[in-house]
Design a protein around this nucleic acid. Structure first.
Lengths: 187, 187, 187, 187
DNA sequence: CCCTAAACGAGACGGTACGTCTCGTCTTTAT
DNA sequence: ATAAAGACGAGACGTACCGTCTCGTTTAGGG
């Protein structure tokens, strides 16, 4: 017996569509020029409905980047047993994911949201930084590495942020050097 | 011989006042809620005058943080001869300068401006990242250190950015650990 | 069956309030010093809403004078059978309606709008001149008068304009003489 | 004995140039869009100098139309002895002077200035209406006409105003009919 | 021949209104 | 009950212009 409420059912399709549209807009026009009216129109969703799902524009942008479509894999994934190689691989993936100018713009939008809204910053921490930190912690433990994984996580995340906010391709190219330096000698 | 133009001279007092006021506002209310009208009023300056000096709100915020009042010392300054100690000292200073919640808000405003405006990002690069990179380059050269100073600079700057955008005090406390890790082994 | 659209209905109360407020402002401070911001505030209406209803300030002023509150009765009204007496009565009414300095200011605002904006001029023609011309045409036809009613209408309207733009009370007093001269001999 | 002050003499060339330029601008772009900055630049005159000569923008526009370049001859001029023919000739001249769309725009600018500024209205009265009234008064006296010349003057001036503010060519064509009606029967 | 002083051009200023944009809310009808 | 539609109040944005003020400059007498 499917117990169903009376009334019109929630538009779960529209929710996903809104996030996809928002993501495309952040990519193409940049965070500041994203408009809720345009998200609603393109997603075929009422504008008020967006406010039923998220409390503000910043929240939508943060959600659309983090919800499930983050271009950075949060995990070291398949541990080859070689910690250094794992980190290098992850960083290479992440840098590649950010190589496209549009993905960079997307992540920059998240950064803008986080810089001006504490809730978005919390989301960034919970959905990006913390998983990375935990993954590195696990990897360190598995490898018996003595260092502080949180510090290493800060470095890697910070280097990514720096490469994104600076739109400098050279900084992006140096990311792999960051891993080599951080993970270098004793690992 | 000061050769001067005809016409009323620019109101350099007002210009400085505008920057100071803007800085205070970014600190207290956050970048998004800063209003040019309020900057103008508090600084005793016409609103149009702000647009005569800077092309946009982002530019004003970037300028007010970077112009001359950057809370981060861009230089390793007095080289003690010990590269590692110098970096530690600089990072400690920078972390302290960002310790106050208001300074953190100030820098976060710059970050928001840079994330949503390429000109502000350029200013950030020119006024913050590049000096730091050059200073570290010089310090590495003086100490005969073989590493890539740009990578080290990326790490330090990135760790700062991360500590700022994340409002997490723990991340701030880990900054000194970042230096220890980066400058650790061979120095 | 009132077929109605979805969505919040237009704020017709506010619309009427805006016109009333605009009219009062034109009267008291004069067309040039009327501010849309003040109209909006006093009418309890958003400023943008004014632009949703009218395309410009001139249009609002033209509308507020003409919409339904024109101080000049556009018709000869009750035909007494005596064309000359009807015209005299109408002109006396119109002159009286303009006797107050504030009504004069109101109409002068319309004139300023019409002089600097073709749309306002069209509105003036459609809402004031044409009805008067038509009324006189009808009156001439009913009375079997052979003259060109358009010429007479031009004269009466023009004399009113002259009395208004010149702020001279003597010109106002001569208006009845205008009717006597125009309608004089053969009528 | 030319008593002359020391100091640089007023730039009377620039003054005339400013009026000419202002007149051209009123003609081409309309009163509302005339800019003092543009008048000053085109006339090769400092902006402040305009304010040394006239108290406001309205005053400049009024001056530039009335100063010496009024397109309407204020006089019946050569009295042929036939009052009706004189009036017809004058009205025909005036209508012709206003026939060009640019002259019409010029006069409409004066009207806009007069409608929103009492000083401009005074200038209009003193420089246009009063001379016409006086000329008609003189003509009536010379012809021994019994009517009130002020009323006739009001009618003729008003009809001109009406033809100008209404941009309707038909109203312009009816001007001669106005004269015929006013001057018709007993003259 | 300098000197004083009036008028000047240039141009930045404080202020204010404009018309546009977007936000987040509110109110209606439709599902 | 929830949605789409859509108008709304609020308020910041960036532009334009006004009328003022402050300079350095020109151009004439007057000493």
């Amino acid at each position: 017996m499917t117990r169903s409420s009376p009334g019109r059912p929630p538009n779960s399709v529209g929710r996903a569509a809104a996030l996809t549209v928002a993501r495309d807009l952040v990519r193409t026009v940049g965070y500041e020029r994203v408009t809720l009216a345009e998200i609603a129109e393109r997603a075929g969703v009422g504008r008020q409905t967006l406010y039923r799902w998220w409390p503000s524009k910043q929240a939508i942008v943060a959600a659309c980047v983090l919800e499930d479509v983050l271009p950075v894999q949060p995990m070291v994934a398949d541990s080859s047993g070689d910690l250094r190689a794992d980190l290098r691989a992850w960083m290479a993936d992440s840098a590649a994911a950010l190589a496209g100018d549009d993905s960079s713009a997307l992540f920059r939008g998240l950064l803008a949201a986080a810089a001006s809204d504490a809730h978005a910053a919390d989301a960034l921490e919970a959905r990006l930084s913390r998983p990375i930190r935990q993954a590195i912690t696990a990897a360190f433990a598995a490898a018996g590495h003595p260092g502080d994984p949180a510090v290493t996580a800060d470095i890697l995340i910070g280097a990514l942020l720096n490469a994104i906010v600076t739109r400098d391709p050279a900084a992006r190219d140096r990311l792999i050097g960051v891993v080599d330096l951080v993970a270098a000698p004793p690992l």
